[in-house]
């Protein structure tokens, strides 16, 4: 326990150092604000511009959460389907990896062509970035179920349905959660990218407006907001994970 406190705090110390360094350099070299604003200038803008920015931020959070939920569900369903039908797994798994090589930035305008400017193309973008980590993590988790537990279940007469729901799915939870954590942070990025497609509000919109009018300080406000939201998402998932798989965490502590 003694070691834990400095461990948790060290990133903050480093971050603070980096920000101070940034501040000092900007001030000493007299860098123009439109080129690179100092951290204090960014903070100032974040506070004074909050009433304008908060609307954009909540709209992005909403979009990200919705997209994350859809992406997670689709990812999990895909994993289940591929796990239950081995033939599909063999046929589709390589394609899944290939799908991740399509640059979202290129795909996004196409989605607008196909589906217009509404909610649908945005959700598709977020889903595309979210589902992959979940599917891979879940498939790995199902596969890692120890053979001795499986043998016991089968000898005791478990049907393949029981085997899945009572053993493989609960066992995969810890692996699944690593996927969910990655997806949760991706979802924010996905939401921002999808807003570039054309939206009324959102951090993506705010960012585009800010950069085209050389309000670099606002661009940085947007960047920091994205980082903070992603971190919050990550923290929420981490709390959920602790609740769900207490046994795993306790086991690890014991070792």
């Amino acid at each position: 326990m003694k070691k834990r406190l400095p461990k948790g705090w060290s990133p903050f110390v480093v971050l603070l150092l980096l920000l101070s360094l940034w501040e000092i350099i900007v001030r000493l070299a007299d860098v123009p604000e439109w080129f690179l604003p100092s951290p204090t200038a960014i903070l100032h803008e974040a506070i004074t511009g909050w009433s304008n920015f908060s609307g954009h931020m909540f709209s992005t959070v909403q979009l990200a959460v919705l997209g994350f939920i859809i992406g997670t569900s689709i990812g999990l369903l895909t994993a289940m389907l591929l796990h239950v039908v081995p033939f599909l797994r063999e046929a589709v798994y390589p394609l899944l990896i290939l799908s991740q090589n399509i640059p979202i930035i290129v795909l996004a305008p196409l989605l607008v062509v196909w589906f217009g400017f509404g909610l649908l193309p945005k959700l598709i973008v977020i889903t595309l970035v979210c589902f992959f980590p979940i599917t891979i993590a879940a498939l790995d988790g199902f596969k890692q179920t120890p053979q001795d537990l499986k043998t016991y279940m089968m000898m005791a007469g478990a049907s393949s349905k029981q085997l899945f729901w009572k053993l493989e799915l609960p066992y995969s939870l810890s692996s699944l959660f690593s996927g969910i954590k990655i997806s949760a942070t991706y979802s924010v990025m996905g939401a921002v990218i999808s807003e570039w497609l054309g939206a009324q509000t959102g951090i993506g919109v705010y960012m585009t407006l800010a950069s085209s009018s050389f309000r670099t300080d606002r661009v940085f406000v947007a960047i920091f907001a994205i980082m903070i939201i992603s971190m919050l998402f990550f923290a929420i998932i981490r709390i959920a994970e602790k609740r769900f798989i207490r046994w795993r965490i306790k086991e690890e502590e014991k070792e």
């Binding site: 001795d148 537990l149 043998t151 016991y152 089968m154 000898m155 005791a156 007469g157 478990a158 009572k166 053993l167 609960p170 798989i245 046994w247 795993r248 086991e251």
Partner: peptide
């Protein structure tokens, strides 16, 4: 036919959760 016997394996095989 599966499930006609009750079984105790070499390792306890308890579900950890």
């Amino acid at each position: 036919k599966r499930g006609s016997i009750s079984y105790m394996p070499q390792s306890p095989s308890l579900l950890p959760w």
